[in-house]
Design a protein around this nucleic acid. Sequence first.
DNA 1: GTCGATATCGCAACAGGTTGCATCTGCGGT
DNA 2: ACCGCAGATGCAACCTGTTGCGATATCGAC
Lengths: 161, 161
Amino acid sequence: MRATGSPAQWTPDLGRPWAGIPDQLRARGLRWTPQRRTLVEVLSQADGHVTGAELVERCRSIDPATIPSTVYRTLDVLEDLGVIRHSHGADGREEFHVLPAAEHAHLYCRVCSGSWELTTDDPVVVTAVDAVRAGHGFEIDVPHLTLTGVCATCRAAGADA
Amino acid sequence: MRATGSPAQWTPDLGRPWAGIPDQLRARGLRWTPQRRTLVEVLSQADGHVTGAELVERCRSIDPATIPSTVYRTLDVLEDLGVIRHSHGADGREEFHVLPAAEHAHLYCRVCSGSWELTTDDPVVVTAVDAVRAGHGFEIDVPHLTLTGVCATCRAAGADA
DNA sequence: GTCGATATCGCAACAGGTTGCATCTGCGGT
DNA sequence: ACCGCAGATGCAACCTGTTGCGATATCGAC
């Protein structure tokens, strides 16, 4: 069997949300490259949050020749496509989230370093977002949000110095 | 006039909040050094927000021998003292705020890149903080907060894509 | 199947911060 | 006035990202 017509790179069987990416890119005049295929494969297997460094690391385990700048640039493109979202963790480092599931904000406790998710439709979130919209006309980008503070447990322990 | 007894370094006339810092440090077993004096002088003249890089820059203009790591370490110490606070801007970079005035959160518009301050006692902020406390027992650290989103003007312009 | 425009890549340098370690020094004790 | 020790400094290497640029390769057109 000759390696005929079929394109040099192809993505075997990523889940549905990912399958359409090559075409979405081409429709925008962008390109589907082996490096992008690698990153998309990594993302399709990631659940929840991943930092930029972790993604670079995982790409390297598939293709050791992976270059960081390529990964970060591709992440920008994928965010434009609406496939992923990024936010900044409590320490300012980047965190990426896979869409469309898992749109959420984060609570980060500076005492115990624990973190919790806050879904976009959590009544508490809705209340807060509505308050800001009503009061300042500002529409908060919830998934980009990380709230730093002190959690209930640590507060109860009186560790909220 | 001989350069007698008087300590080699002294801080001429910083404002009140700053004057007590040397003693606050010593009371904790920490030290008052020329490098710290430089940084405190810079901070005492800063209003509102400053990034870490800016502070390093300004310290260098007073003492060209300033080393970044020393500045950042001193900033940590001063934050422990409660003299300053840091948060992370929309791009994740550090921003420092001088206390006790100006305790506030920030709104950052991702469309026009504008930013606004939100005081701690703003009714909108109070509502939001209360909601999270009531709903999750979590006490938000407001001054550490930067809300990314779309401002009223840009929303009106329909640029909230 | 080939060609050309241009998107993307790889690389190297840079920027903002952080960290480990050897050396130095503020400052409390005597 | 001097000592000693723990806290600070300076330095160098490292980490996470970003940017400019020349070389390469994708992909639509013919």
